[in-house]
Design a protein around this nucleic acid. Structure first.
Lengths: 150, 150
DNA sequence: ATTATTCAGGACTAAAATAGTCCTAAAAAG
DNA sequence: CTTTTTAGGACTATTTTAGTCCTGAATAAT
């Protein structure tokens, strides 16, 4: 069971790449070369990140993409959402109208808590965290997570 | 972005259903009727749960399926794994040989922590929890989660 | 024994999601 | 006005996933 689509996975790599030089503008081609992903795919991903407001773009010569915000203001959750849509454990954690299959299904409240926890965890990790060579303090995210759920 | 496949989702419903009468043996047909899922699909799921050792089966008249362990000994994580395979955020969280795309990729340690946290959370929730009408103490899982990650 | 019931195993099909590519247009710079 | 580069979206191919079906084996009852 894989959580992220390939595209979202790539997107995290790409965003992390440009987070290392947040001022710098990179063309799609440069990024494709740097992260070793096919150019058309990179282009697609950059467009989506741009539409989601996570990147800024500029056309023409010397154009390209750069982060629209500071690395610590862009969460992994935002990147995933831009590529894969909203995060949910099951269909029914997204739907407003609760689960059609009414039988056997007021069961899932525990799962929805896990879902929430996951969301919060992904929101807590930012690009700034991603480019740190060795991670240490995801405990921060877990604290906030506890706070939310308890 | 959906975390669980439909099949895994169904599996949780089905397992929860038989967790309410753990001694009772149910035929595939009975369960299909009760949870309102197509019989062949239910059969497929029951077989996989059985193969995974979560259910016991008996053939012949009066045959059927029942839980192989107590409800509090069967975690949601086990059910998901039986249907969707091992839980992982990305390809590279499963692979032993770390990420081929070496460029830009010693980046993911934070994600793998989230992955771990998710796993632990799913392991902490059992069928016994699932059949409680109102959930309260996922905080337990989060504590153990904190313990593991910190 | 024979028959009815039920699971076991796995092949197969169909549908949907995903990944990946490509084309045309628009903006910017020189 | 030509080159560079993104914008938008259509399109195709691939892979996954869901769902169905068939044949065989175990069990129980008559």
């Amino acid at each position: 069971m894989l959580l992220l689509s390939k595209l979202a996975d790539y997107a995290i790599i790409i965003a992390s790449y440009s987070a290392r030089e947040p001022q710098q503008t990179y063309t799609a081609a440069e990024i494709a070369l740097a992260v070793n992903i096919a150019l058309p795919t990179v282009q697609k991903i950059l467009k989506r990140l741009n539409q989601a407001g996570l990147l800024q773009s500029e056309r023409g010569p010397h154009g390209g993409y750069r982060l629209a915000k500071r690395p610590d203001e862009i969460s992994v959750a935002q990147i995933i959402a831009a590529l894969d849509g909203p995060i949910g454990l099951t269909e029914c954690s997204l739907a407003e109208d609760h689960c059609q299959k009414a039988k056997g299904c007021n069961i899932r409240s525990n799962l929805s808590l896990i879902n929430q926890a996951l969301k919060i965890a992904l929101e807590a990790v930012t690009l700034a965290d991603m480019i740190k060579p060795t991670p240490r303090e995801v405990s921060i995210s877990l604290d906030s997570l506890r706070a939310h759920v308890r």
